[in-house]
Amino acid sequence: MFVQPVTLRDHGLRLEPLALAHEDGLRAAAADGELWTLRVTSVPEPENTRAYIETALKMREEGHRFAFAVIDDASDRVLGSTSYHDIVPAVQRVEIGWTWYARSVQRSHVNTTAKLLMMGHAFDTLGCRVVGWRTDNYNFASQRAIERLGAQKDGVLRGHALRRDGTIRDTVMYSMTAGEWPEARAQLLYLRGRHG
Rank of each mutant, 00 (worst) to 15 (best):
E62A: 15
I71T: 04
E54F: 01
G63C: 09
D86V: 10
D73G: 09
Y52L: 03
T41C: 02
N48K: 10
I53V: 12
T41N: 10
P46N: 09
S81P: 05
A69F: 07
N48D: 13
M59T: 07
F66K: 08
T82R: 14
L79K: 08
E47D: 12
V70Q: 10
G80V: 00
Q92R: 14
A74V: 14
T82I: 14
I87K: 08
D72M: 13
Y101E: 02
E45R: 15
N48I: 01
E54S: 01
W98R: 09
D86L: 12
R93H: 14
V43P: 01
F66D: 04
V78P: 02
H85W: 06
W98H: 10
S83G: 07
D73F: 04
I53C: 01
T99V: 04
S42L: 14
S75G: 07
A56W: 00
D72R: 14
V91Y: 09
G97C: 05
F66C: 08
E95A: 13
A56Y: 00
L79D: 08
S83P: 09
Q92D: 03
A74Y: 10
D76L: 13
A56I: 02
V94W: 04
I96D: 00
D72L: 11
V91L: 10
R50N: 13
V78E: 03
D73L: 14
D86N: 13
K58S: 15
P44Q: 04
L79N: 09
